[in-house]
Design a protein around this nucleic acid. Structure first.
Lengths: 248, 248
DNA sequence: ATTTATTATGCAACAATTTGCAGCTTTTTA
DNA sequence: TAAAAAGCTGCAAATTGTTGCATAATAAAT
């Protein structure tokens, strides 16, 4: 294998996974780690990757959501981990596009083989980095604020899907109003997604619980699973449990 | 074996395998490595292959993996500036998803009001940042390598559009083969885009001119405008001008 | 057809690049 | 703070490239 080929392979891996480990590269193409390090140094010098201890990171990317800017990342990662455990090989999964969903996308295990439908640009981008996940984008007009496709076209596409799971990050959830949101178009899409899935999983940081917005997405009865960063046994969650929701 | 034959054989091997080792060639046609090296030097000088330590690479090899050639950002910005000048208020614009298109997206003037259709995730993201541009995403299965939607669904959606302009970044263009690419699905989409637009604009850094890939997108006769980073009067562009293309 | 000029090829000596290894330093992690 | 992992440096071996030159092949001219 020529040096250039090797470096091209490395770049490809970086762009695919957003990051690489020297050790992995070394074993997957059978050259010493020294060589990999030297390659990474060259690629870093010419500005194609960012070198870090143990490997390298993709440069161009992460422009969508800089992780550090995301509000409450830690909580969202806890939620994302719980969410990921629900996804099994071969499933059809429908997801919205909040930051919690993005965190989930990043935590999907490498070997998971599943099909993801989404109308969210950042979510689709994350899914597309994954080696074994098939991504179907539900197109339509892009709502700027939320970066997701909204409109009749998207909704009618969603209605033709029959998914196993639907993951929604929500902005407000309480006992009285159920799930509520503030953007009419987005609500229509979320609604269609819930209807198109056998099971609906709602992800919310506890801060957003027991608050409500103006437009109703659905009642609690249409939700199957609620994920928060809290311990499932936390007493704040009791009322939801009593309403028949599974708490993770 | 004549020199010309030998070089033709080398070119064939390169286009077949994307790369060759001097040592392999030397043993398979029984000439000294010196001769092979001299041949490779000539082929490299005339721009037919890229010579590297130990052998040579196909020109198309580059665009295969090295998606983020930071080297050419300058060229691409020159191209993007020229491209932007073609877009007027109220237009319907259809675009692909190469890095040149992304550069163009970033250079769109703030006050431009237009509607952009695309199947490319990064391009859609850039358009969505713009205050006055309406973005319609053409959804379907996302091809991982190129991050664009491909498939029958996307193509049939494109066929329902009647756009004023279509911008395509291309990986290879030459007089003999027209525009060529290496991914079947992507070619289908590009094809549909060309048909759906009144005018087609092709953007290519000069490096990619006079090289070709395996699959044909369209002939030069289906293109209206060619944009490169070169001066429009550059003699390299003469043959294209003679084929009826407008050069910017 | 023979000579001459030009080009192509192979060889050998030397230069440069690439790569893996060993020893040591730095960074990370528990 | 100590062990483990990763990085750096210098070095040696192997591979690849370069250059000058002799020889062979080809084309051109007489």
């Amino acid at each position: 294998m020529l040096k250039k080929e090797r470096q091209a392979y490395i770049l490809h891996q970086v762009s695919l996974h957003n990051s690489v480990l020297s050790a992995d590269l070394s074993s997957s193409i059978n050259v010493s780690e020294d060589t990999i390090r030297r390659d990474l140094n060259e690629l870093a010098e010419s500005g194609k990757v960012i070198k870090v201890h143990g490997g390298a990171l993709s440069k161009s990317f992460n422009s969508f959501y800089l992780r550090s800017d995301v509000y409450n990342v830690d909580s969202k990662q806890v939620i994302a981990e719980k969410a990921v455990s629900l996804i099994k090989d071969g499933m059809f999964v429908l997801t919205g596009g909040g930051t919690t969903v993005i965190e989930m996308a990043r935590l999907l295990p490498e070997n998971l083989k599943a099909t993801f439908f989404t109308g969210s640009i950042p979510a689709a981008y994350e899914y597309a980095q994954h080696p074994n996940i098939e991504v179907i984008f539900i197109g339509d007009k892009i709502a700027k604020k939320s970066q997701i496709a909204v409109g009749g076209e998207a909704i009618s596409k969603i209605k033709h899907i029959k998914a196993d799971l639907c993951f929604l990050g929500v902005n407000a959830i309480d006992l009285e109003h159920g799930i509520t949101d503030s953007d009419w178009d987005v609500v229509q899409v979320k609604n269609a997604m819930i209807e198109a899935s056998s099971q609906t999983v709602v992800m919310s940081i506890s801060e957003k619980m027991n608050s409500h917005h103006r437009i109703r997405v659905c009642g609690l009865d249409e939700i199957d699973i609620l994920i928060t960063e809290l311990d499932p046994a936390d007493s704040i969650l009791d009322p939801f449990r009593l309403n028949g929701l599974t708490i993770l």
